[in-house]
Simulated assay, not measured.
Amino acid sequence: MKERDSESFESLSQVLPNTSNSARMIQMSMANSGSAAPAPAGQDHLDRSKWLLDCPEPPSPWQELKTQVKESYLTKAKKFKSLRKQPLPKRILFILQAVFPIFGWCRNYKLTMFKNDLMAGLTLASLCIPQSIGYATLAKLDPQYGLYTSVVPPLIYALMGTSREIAIGPVAVVSLLVSSMLQKLIDPETDPLGYKKLVLTTTFFAGIFQASFGIFRLGFLVDFLSHAAIVGFMGGAAIVIGLQQLKGLLGITNFTTNTDIVSVLRAVWRSCHQQWSPHTFILGCSFLSFILITPSSGRRTKSCFGYQQ
């Protein structure tokens, strides 16, 4: 038994060179455990502290990157090697299923699922239509462009997607980034045609990058983004989006093109003394109050809002 333990600790010290000292200490303590007297409590605590202080270092980002690349590509390479012995039709079917997963799950699709899918599609369509129009307005574009971006991507993802829970389409953060970056180059009010061309060019190159990330299986790069960075980015985007909605809430016509908090609040303060629509403000606050109050009141009166027990 002792020989097996010594061999295991020797292998551990070879794999993790930083743990050689701790492994030797553990091995010596186990070798002397049968004959020597038990160590005092203070000495045992000191040995444990040495083991903790001499723990192995975490892998570097470069090592993690190499590990992720190996896991992403070697698994695919092994699958393709196993297909060499298969006939040609099975190879073609495997490649089609890898590129278009619909060929894999459509064989098990039943007609009874169509009713639920139809209801889900109608529900999402009723939600996406006003939402996409709002995103187009946030990107300084016409409303029909928001409808284009909410219809075409789901059709493509239905053929090439692998997740049933993911939402495909425009988002508020991307719309805000597009408008904040491009309106510094071209003013959408003075040159709307040039602004639309610039937006289409930007989205075209963004699609090329996303397609290349999918082809080369580079989705693991998202793991290197820290949670704090993502939360900070989303929180800042939410604040900027909320400030940009003050233009429509107050009915302001001439508004600043900047997105920082100081410029937006300064523009709101100036417009409140000169031009703003109280009727628009009252109507907007009414709908906002309705949206905030409805969920809490709906839980209390479930029968009125269609909630089920």
Results as ranks from 00 to 15, higher is better:
3 E>A: 15
14 Q>M: 10
16 L>D: 07
16 L>S: 11
17 P>K: 09
19 T>K: 03
24 R>V: 12
24 R>T: 14
25 M>C: 08
26 I>T: 03
32 N>D: 13
33 S>W: 07
39 A>T: 02
47 D>E: 09
52 L>V: 05
62 W>V: 08
66 K>W: 07
68 Q>P: 02
68 Q>V: 02
69 V>W: 04
72 S>M: 10
73 Y>P: 03
75 T>S: 15
78 K>P: 01
79 K>S: 13
84 R>H: 12
87 P>T: 05
89 P>W: 06
90 K>Q: 12
95 I>L: 10
99 V>Y: 01
101 P>V: 10
104 G>P: 01
104 G>S: 14
105 W>V: 08
108 N>D: 10
113 M>N: 15
113 M>R: 12
116 N>A: 15
118 L>D: 05
119 M>T: 08
120 A>G: 13
120 A>E: 09
121 G>Y: 04
123 T>H: 05
127 L>T: 11
129 I>A: 04
130 P>H: 04
133 I>V: 13
135 Y>F: 12
137 T>P: 04
143 P>I: 05
144 Q>C: 07
144 Q>Y: 15
144 Q>G: 03
147 L>C: 03
153 P>M: 05
158 A>N: 10
159 L>M: 11
160 M>K: 12
167 A>S: 14
172 A>D: 01
177 L>V: 07
181 M>H: 13
181 M>Y: 07
182 L>T: 01
187 D>K: 03
188 P>D: 00
188 P>C: 03
189 E>R: 08
193 L>M: 10
194 G>C: 02
197 K>M: 14
199 V>P: 01
201 T>R: 12
203 T>R: 07
205 F>P: 00
205 F>S: 03
212 S>T: 13
212 S>Y: 12
212 S>F: 15
213 F>Q: 09
217 R>D: 13
218 L>G: 05
222 V>W: 08
225 L>P: 03
228 A>Q: 12
234 M>Q: 09
237 A>G: 07
237 A>H: 02
237 A>C: 10
241 I>G: 00
242 G>A: 12
252 I>W: 00
257 T>G: 10
258 N>H: 14
259 T>A: 08
262 V>P: 01
263 S>N: 05
268 V>Y: 05
270 R>G: 06
271 S>L: 02
275 Q>G: 04
280 T>L: 06
281 F>L: 10
284 G>D: 02
286 S>Q: 10
287 F>I: 11
290 F>V: 10
296 S>H: 09
301 T>D: 15
